Computed example of a mutant assay.
Amino acid sequence: MKKENDLLSKKEELNVWTSIWLKPRETVRYAINHKPMKFAVILALIAGIFDLLNGATQNNLGDTISIPMIFVLAIIVGPIFGIIGWWIGAGIATIVGTWLGGIGKFAELKMAFAITYIPIILFGFLWIPDYLILGEVLFIEDFDISFGKIIWLFFSGFISIVVGIWNFIITINAIAEAHQFSRWRGFWTIVIPATVIFVVLLLFFLPFIFLLL
Rank of each mutant, 00 (worst) to 15 (best):
R25I: 06
F168I: 13
F158D: 03
K23V: 03
A174F: 02
F168C: 08
F187N: 05
S66E: 12
R25H: 08
G48S: 12
I32D: 04
I80K: 07
L45D: 05
I83P: 00
E136P: 05
G186K: 08
I140T: 13
I145T: 15
I32F: 10
L22I: 10
W17K: 02
G48H: 03
F113R: 03
F210P: 03
E4G: 02
K149W: 07
V199A: 15
F155D: 04
A47Y: 02
I92M: 01
P119R: 06
R29K: 14
I118R: 00
F158S: 14
G101C: 09
L73I: 12
K38E: 11
N173E: 11
G186A: 09
N54V: 07
M111G: 02
F210A: 11
G48D: 06
I65R: 07
L45K: 09
V41R: 00
V28P: 01
D130F: 07
P119A: 09
H34S: 14
K38S: 15
W152C: 05
E12Q: 15
L138T: 00
F123S: 08
I88F: 00
K38V: 13
W87S: 00
N54H: 09
D142F: 07
W86E: 00
N60G: 05
W152H: 10
I67K: 04
I65D: 08
V137N: 13
L212Y: 13
A90R: 00
T171L: 09
I70T: 09
G82L: 03
F50I: 13
Q180T: 12
M111Q: 05
G135M: 11
E12A: 10
G148K: 10
